[in-house]
Design a protein around this nucleic acid. Structure first.
Lengths: 153, 153
DNA sequence: TGGGCTGCATGATAGGTATCATGTTTGTGG
DNA sequence: CCACAAACATGATACCTATCATGCAGCCCA
């Protein structure tokens, strides 16, 4: 467990290796995954401006993270006029990504979702060996994705 | 049409009344809705820091919008150290909303989606007359939502 | 009072996908 | 060069949901 929901925000994290999920627990015991952060991903980027974490973060694989103390980040953002803008720009990009994913997931068929995904990736097919990650991202089983891909050849 | 994709960013908009959809067109002619902005909603909040709009915006109903020139907003963000932080905080909140929606839509059954939605709304049921909006938000037909609701009573 | 509109509700059917099962190809390390 | 794992691929079945259809209740307005 990297950090727990409602805990005081201590740091912002960057994933160096491994896989960390941002999750939220429900009353019925169910668990919802909000973000899958692998190498290069940033965790809790939206929480540095808050007092407590809005979700929990748990390592799914053995992972290495780099922690940036919340205080330092906050001081930087408040002192440097540029830093805050860079930060805002980053958040804007993250938001576009999240909205994109949301609307892809709102589509009903695998065909529609794949087409939409391809549109955002400028038609580039994923490299061999990573297709199941795409299946994960657009919320379909890998089998269904394979079937749809083979239909298009 | 409020603005078109790839057009130069002229303004940031706030919806006063009506309904405006943020959309993106695909190669196959299909259309994906990224955001539904009704009264109080903000349009292109992520685009003020960009040169061109990333999506198109079209009014679904007769609507009234208030436009804030991009230049003014940009000047404010660059001059006031606080404004940029407030803006970042707003973007962070929007991002959380988008991520929440994405993960609700990643759930497979209506029951799971409704439970997740209720968790984020602290268990409050929607008021009578707005349930079909919830159905829309969690990506299910209103009939399916009615069925699930009646099963829980 | 009655017509029309909207939200709520339920039944029947068809279609799409998750899941399980099983097999083939590819690639990596010993 | 072989073994073993992961990715790729395809078939069969069951389940869930979208959709169409239909009906009821409340509300506004003429």
């Amino acid at each position: 467990m990297v950090f727990d929901m409602d805990a005081e925000v201590s740091s912002l994290f960057v994933v160096k290796s491994g896989l960390v999920h941002l999750v939220r627990f429900q009353e019925d015991g169910g668990m919802v995954v909000l973000q899958r952060a692998h190498a290069g991903g940033v965790l809790a980027e939206a929480s540095v401006l808050s007092d407590s974490y809005h979700c929990a973060a748990m390592a799914i694989q053995p992972s290495v993270l780099k922690a940036y103390p919340r205080k330092s980040v906050q001081t930087l953002l408040e002192s440097s006029p540029d830093a805050a803008l860079v930060y805002a720009r980053f958040l804007a990009a993250e938001m576009r990504t999240a909205r994109k994913r949301a609307e892809i997931l709102a589509l009903k068929t695998v065909a529609e979702r794949l087409t939409a995904w391809l549109t955002w990736n400028h038609g580039c097919l994923p490299v061999r060996g990573t297709w199941h990650h795409v299946a994960d991202e657009i919320g379909v089983s890998k089998e269904a994705l394979y079937r749809e891909l083979s239909k298009r050849r």
